[in-house]
Simulated assay, not measured.
Amino acid sequence: MHTSSRIYVAGHRGMVGSAIVRQLQAEGFDNLVLRTRQELDLTDQRAVEDFFAAERPEYVFLAAAKVGGIHANDTYPAEFLRDNLAIQTNVIHNAWKHGTKKLLFLGSSCIYPRDCPQPIKEEYLLTGPLEPTNEWYAIAKIAGLKMCQAYRKQYGFDAICAMPTNLYGPGDNYHPENSHVVPGLIRRFHEAKLANAPEVSIWGTGTPLREFMHADDLADALLFLMSNYSAADIVNIGSGLEASIAALARLIAEVVGYRGTLQFDPSKPDGTPRKRLDTSRLTSMGWRSRIPLREGLARTYSNWNDCRN
């Protein structure tokens, strides 16, 4: 990409999309095509076709998706499958149809089998059953990456696929029920601190292990891939910063300043026991994560707190 290239970031108001925009702007890219959900409904086939026919972006970052945690996936399975399939199909097809030079599709580490070996290599995809608590989202994302591979194979379309680990950062969803673990815990500990609550209940046993990565790190990796990678194989993006849910909760409580008791609820689902990505394919190209977990969490909490005040 050149700094004058016409670049469309789908989902630019979300956590990942906004991080991509910040990174592009920091590196001097000033010809960005951005549309809010109200301006362009990506599930609307005709609207997406009209947009691509009129704007003809040269490069596309497909960061738009319907996302959420375990509760949201379990509560809205039809929406997670339907909306994500529609968004992906409309954007990928019309990017190819209207001459986009290159598209980067964002998947998720939840596409991998629930019990595959650790760390998770890209070739483990489709080698076993998915985690039931997020299979609807995972199936949609698998369809999206396979669509990219199919369009590359049949039409020669330069579509690449990146699979990030668990993310957090500015612009995350802090909904009390539908959020992922980091924003969910930040909000609960913050509210508990304000209320002087003696304890906070946390879903599950606290034993599952997760790898966490700041969205700004991901954005840096995505621009690196857009400039340096072109192949059908998917690429894992991770930080190598792994922690148990219990350790994560204690770290977030410390960052927020909550001093009460953490009470884990084993009657609630844990999700996948462990999920750490093998990022050797990416690191062999010369890219590595730079934001430590504690620093990233502190920056995220400070940003959220500032936005609330």
Rank of each mutant, 00 (worst) to 15 (best):
A219V: 10
H180M: 10
W136L: 08
L125N: 03
R188N: 04
A143M: 12
W136I: 01
D216F: 02
I160V: 15
K153C: 01
A219N: 01
S179W: 01
Y151R: 07
E131L: 00
L185M: 14
E199Y: 09
A159P: 01
Y174W: 07
N228E: 12
M147K: 11
Q149G: 05
F157M: 06
T127K: 14
C161L: 05
L223V: 10
L218C: 09
I202Q: 10
G169V: 07
A162V: 15
R210S: 08
E211L: 10
I142D: 09
N134L: 08
G206A: 13
Y124D: 02
E123I: 05
A140Y: 00
H180Y: 06
L130Q: 02
K121I: 05
L126Q: 09
V182A: 10
A192Q: 01
M226P: 02
C148I: 01
C161T: 15
N178G: 09
G206K: 05
G204C: 13
E135T: 12
K121D: 06
N228C: 03
M226V: 11
R188W: 00
E211I: 05
T207N: 14
A195N: 12
L130T: 02
F157K: 10
G206Q: 11
K146L: 14
L218I: 12
E122G: 11
D172I: 00
M163N: 15
G128F: 07
H180A: 09
H190Y: 13
A143R: 08
G144Q: 08
Y151M: 12
C161H: 14
L145N: 09
L223A: 04
A140M: 07
N166W: 03
T165L: 09
A138H: 06
E135G: 06
L194T: 14
H180I: 04
E191N: 04
P176N: 10
R210D: 03
L130K: 04
A138T: 08
L167V: 02
T165D: 14
D172V: 03
E211K: 05
Y151S: 07
G169H: 04
K121N: 10
N134T: 06
L222R: 07
E177D: 12
S201A: 15
W203S: 15
M213S: 03
A140C: 05
Y155V: 04
E191H: 04
L125E: 12
M213R: 02
T165Y: 04
D217Q: 13
S179L: 09
E199P: 00
P176G: 11
G171M: 00
D158G: 06
L126G: 00
W136N: 14
G171L: 00
M147E: 13
N228Y: 02
K153Y: 06
T207W: 03
N178Y: 08
P183G: 08
K141W: 04
K193E: 13
T133M: 07
G171H: 02
N196R: 15
T207L: 14
M213N: 02
K193D: 00
A143K: 04
N196P: 01
F224G: 03
A215Y: 01
V181A: 13
K121V: 03
M213F: 02
M163Y: 07
E177V: 12
M226G: 06
T127S: 13
A150M: 12
G156Y: 08
A140D: 06
Y168K: 02
A197C: 06
I160S: 09
A221R: 07
M147L: 15
G171K: 00
Y174I: 07
N134P: 04
G128S: 05
V181M: 13
